[in-house]
Amino acid sequence: MKVLTIHEQILLLAIWRLKDNAYGVRIRQSVAEETDMVYTYGTLYSSLEQLVKKGYVSKTIGEATAERGGRRKIYYNVSKEGMTALKEAKELQNTLWNGIPDMIFSEEK
């Protein structure tokens, strides 16, 4: 079973959250707001294309808009496979953490 990496989870969740507005600028912003992780566009698109290749994400090409110098946006959408993978990741997370009390962290302090 393939497990999503943390990076992939972050991106997929950001895309899901943004719904119909999931394109480069917004995804980057959203990720930065939620997690304090700042991607460069290089890394962002590299990872997005990986997700597309794996089938977790689909893309649609949007209309041209003036504020982008007439360039079209690529919108990303979490696919069915993406949702399944997210669900599996979450379940795995829960299983792993099941029965482990939060106090293990406070003990270390």
Binding site: Y23, R28, Y41, G42, E49, R68, I74
Partner: peptide, 20 residues
């Protein structure tokens, strides 16, 4: 250097954020 499949979108993102 950017991936020819998405280069227009990347450039657009850059420009959009630049103006912002």
């Amino acid at each position: 250097f950017s991936n020819p499949e998405v280069d227009f979108s990347i450039a657009g993102d850059f420009e959009e954020e630049y103006y912002e």
